[in-house]
């Protein structure tokens, strides 16, 4: 089958079209780009119309759909257990973000509610809520960054990422146990439920990355990327 050599395109048209395609291909996961970018570009350029300077809407939608599909698949050689664990860790980061935003949005309501219940401690309650919110605003982004780093390290099969996740899970479990022992389920049921939900996500992720099917992926010497 002969492949036409990009007919009818001047050098500048061809360069502009190729730039457009490269921008679309940038949405694909890294492993796919390393493996396929030059080849897909060759096919796209061979399929180009005369005088075409920009990707067509149809081709752009098709490439973006392909990029989404590729991101929803494990990378070559990655067990499904690891892939699922990585998405759980991203869900963990999203849940932490949700909790932080909810807390910031409802802090004045929480403060007013507590003061209405215990008017004698208004000053102390105001101070305590402010301290708690400040702590959460500082700690929240750090915890979200840790979740995302753990997801990145696990997706690439880094053994230290798996060990770090075990430590992180241990700390999360201790913090949940401490909150339960302090009666959080009674005086802050919403926050405690969110904490238990996030702990459950971490528990599922740790079972997946320490699953028998995942272990060989973390024990290789070569980096995960194909």
């Amino acid at each position: 089958m002969s492949e036409p050599a990009e007919p009818g395109l001047s050098i500048s048209e061809s360069a502009s079209l190729e730039r457009g395609y490269r921008r679309l291909l940038a949405w694909y996961p890294k492993w796919f780009r390393l493996r396929n970018t030059e080849e897909v570009l060759a096919v796209l350029m061979a399929c180009a119309q005369d005088d075409q300077t920009r990707p067509s809407l149809e081709a752009a939608v098709d490439l973006l759909k392909g990029a989404a599909r590729m991101r929803l698949r494990p990378m070559p050689g990655q067990p499904r257990t690891v892939f699922a664990a990585v998405w759980l860790m991203i869900a963990g980061a999203a849940a932490e973000l949700g909790v932080m935003v909810t807390l910031l949005a409802t802090q004045s309501g929480i403060k007013a509610d507590l003061i209405a219940r215990y008017p004698a401690y208004a000053h102390a309650i105001g101070h305590a809520v402010n301290v708690q919110v400040t702590l959460d605003v500082v700690a929240g982004p750090i915890v979200i960054a840790v979740w995302l780093w753990l997801a990145w390290a696990s997706s690439r099969g880094k053994q230290r990422g798996r060990v770090a996740f075990a430590v992180f899970f241990g700390l999360t479990s201790l913090s949940v146990l401490y909150s339960l022992s302090q009666g959080s389920l009674v005086y802050a049921p919403a926050a405690m439920s969110a904490g238990l939900g996030i702990w459950a996500i971490a528990a599922a992720a740790i079972m997946l990355i320490f699953n028998k099917a995942s272990s060989p992926y973390f024990q290789r010497r070569e980096p995960a990327l194909a």
Binding site: M1, E3, E39, V40, A42, V43, L44, C47, K65
Partner: peptide
């Protein structure tokens, strides 16, 4: 190769199926 597959699929289907690059490589 990729372009060959696209042309061949168009032939086999009597021109009804025109594969786009994103679909093909997925």
């Amino acid at each position: 190769h990729g372009y060959g597959i696209i042309s061949d699929v168009a032939d086999i289907s009597g021109g009804r199926v025109k594969l786009l690059a994103g679909t093909l490589y997925t």
